[in-house]
């Protein structure tokens, strides 16, 4: 009896999985906007290439 119940649960689970495979939700898209990527790269390059912020030298004693 318990085996029947286990088999029934398994078949129901399998049926649910089949339904999910048949009508799966659309995955989140991965958009890569070339202009945005280029803008981000230019900004990052400018930040890296910029000279360091001038700071007062420590007093030489």
């Amino acid at each position: 009896m318990s085996m029947d119940r286990t088999a029934s649960v398994e078949s129901v689970t399998l049926a649910v999985e089949v339904e999910d495979l048949l009508d799966s939700t659309e995955p989140d898209g991965v958009f890569r906007d070339t202009r945005e990527c280029a803008g981000a790269a230019i900004l990052l390059g400018a930040l890296l290439a910029s000279p360091p912020t001038p700071r007062p030298k420590p007093d030489a004693r």
Binding site: S11, A15, V18, E19, L22, D23
Partner: peptide
């Protein structure tokens, strides 16, 4: 026989 679309099955399931 094992996987008929149920009463609440999606349209995709029934069409498939």
């Amino acid at each position: 026989a094992a996987f008929p679309p149920g009463a609440d099955a999606s349209a995709v399931s029934v069409w498939s």
